[in-house]
C-alpha cells in the first residue's frame, strides 16, 4: 500500500500552485524542512519568507501580504499555529476575513516521539470556533493536493490541518475535492462512520471488517470540518447510528461538529472515537494511536457497541 504524508503532498502542491499563480507566497517559522515548504522556497526563493521562530510575526506578516493582494500560505506545526498565534489569527486574520491560508502540519498524536508539547489535539476546535474560518483536514495526498488549490481559490482564511506521518493513499486524480462537500467512500445502511484525516483509512478498514460481521456501514470522509456538510451528516444519521473518528480531542472537533447538527436536527445515537480530554506523550505513532484508542479496531468496537445497545449504554 502506497503511503504519503499529507505534509509532503502539501509541499509538492505548493510548487505546482506557485507556478500557476504568481500571487501565491509562502511563509514559515523555521520549520520549512518539516512542513515541506522547503520545496517552494527552493523553487521561488523570492516568494518565500522565513520569519524565524516567531509565529505571531508569521501570522501578522501573512495578514499584511494578504492585504496587498497576495495569497499567503503560512506554515508551522499545528500546535504553534493554533496556539502560539491564536490572537493573531482571530483578530488579525479572521476578523477582517483576510485571504491567509494557514497550513499547519504535525497535527495530532502521529507526530510521535516529540511528545505532547508538539501534538496538537485541540487545533480543530480552536480554529472551528472562529467566525469566517474554513477548516480542512485532508485524508490523503491527493485530497491534500486538491485542498491546497481549493484553499487558494477560496476567498478568505483557511486552516489546513496536515500530518507528519505517511498515510495510505485513498484517492486517485479523478477524485474531486470541494470545500464543504463530504465524500461518501462506502455505502451502507446499518451504521455510519464519519471520519477525517488519517482516521478515514481506519474507518474504511473498520467498515470492511464490519462487513464480514454482517454490518453494512456508510463511510463518510468529512474533510471539511467547517463549513460542515450538513446533508452528509443527516444522511449518515439516517442509518440510525453514527460514529465519528478523528485524531484530535473529542471535545470541540469533528465529533462535536457532527453532534451539534444531530442534536438540533436529527438526534441520533452517537459515539466519538478520538482523544479523551488528555495530552499525548512520546512514542511511535502507531503505538500512540493504539494506546489512545485511534485505530480501526476502536472504531469497529464503537460501531458494534452502538448497534447492540444504541441507547442507555
Amino acid at each position: 500500500m502506497q503511503k504519503i504524508a499529507t505534509r509532503e503532498a502539501y509541499g509538492r502542491a505548493l510548487v505546482q500552485l506557485g507556478h500557476q499563480d504568481p500571487r501565491v507566497v509562502v511563509l514559515d517559522a523555521d520549520l520549512s524542512r518539516s512542513t515541506m515548504t522547503v520545496y517552494f522556497a527552493r523553487e521561488f526563493p523570492h516568494r518565500f519568507f522565513n520569519m524565524g521562530v516567531a509565529e505571531q510575526s508569521l501570522m501578522g506578516t501573512a495578514a499584511g501580504l494578504a492585504l496587498c493582494g497576495k495569497i499567503p500560505f503560512a506554515s508551522t506545526f499545528a500546535v504553534f499555529a493554533s496556539g502560539r498565534a491564536y490572537d493573531q489569527i482571530r483578530n488579525g486574520i479572521a476578523y477582517p476575513a483576510l485571504n491567509v491560508k494557514i497550513a499547519a502540519t504535525h497535527g495530532g498524536l502521529s507526530v510521535g516521539e516529540d511528545g505532547a508539547s508538539h501534538q496538537a489535539l485541540e487545533d480543530i476546535t480552536l480554529m472551528r470556533v472562529i467566525p469566517n474560518m474554513t477548516v480542512i483536514v485532508p485524508a490523503d495526498a491527493e485530497e491534500t493536493r486538491q485542498a491546497v488549490f481549493a484553499a487558494a481559490r477560496h476567498e478568505g482564511p483557511v486552516y489546513l490541518r496536515l500530518g507528519r506521518l505517511p498515510v495510505p493513499v485513498i484517492y486517485e486524480e479523478e477524485y474531486v475535492f470541494q470545500i464543504g462537500r463530504a465524500h461518501i467512500l462506502r455505502e451502507g445502511e446499518d451504521a455510519a462512520i464519519i471520519a477525517c484525516g488519517l482516521m478515514v483509512h481506519e474507518a474504511l478498514r473498520a467498515a470492511e471488517e464490519l462487513d464480514s460481521l454482517g454490518f453494512k456501514v456508510l463511510v463518510v470522509n468529512m474533510s471539511t470540518i467547517k463549513p460542515l456538510d450538513r446533508e452528509a451528516v443527516l444522511r449518515a444519521a439516517r442509518t440510525g447510528a453514527v460514529v465519528t473518528a478523528e485524531e484530535h480531542s473529542v471535545i470541540g472537533g469533528l465529533g462535536s461538529a457532527v453532534a451539534e447538527v444531530l442534536a438540533q436536527e436529527l438526534p441520533t445515537p452517537m459515539a466519538m472515537v478520538g482523544v479523551k480530554d488528555t495530552f499525548g506523550e512520546s512514542g511511535k505513532p502507531q503505538e500512540l494511536l493504539e494506546k489512545y484508542g485511534l485505530t480501526h479496531r476502536h472504531i469497529l468496537q464503537a460501531v458494534l457497541t452502538l448497534k447492540r445497545a444504541p441507547l442507555g449504554r
Binding site: 501570522m59 501578522g60 495578514a63 499584511g64 492585504l67 493582494g69 483578530n91 476578523y95 477582517p96
Partner: peptide, 25 residues
Amino acid sequence: VEVSTGSLGQGLAVGNGMALAARLD
C-alpha cells in the same frame, strides 16, 4: 482603514507584510 487593529502589538508585523508585498510588486 487599512488594517483591523485593537489587539495591541500586531500592526508592525502587518506592516512588514505590506512592505514585502510592495517589494514583490
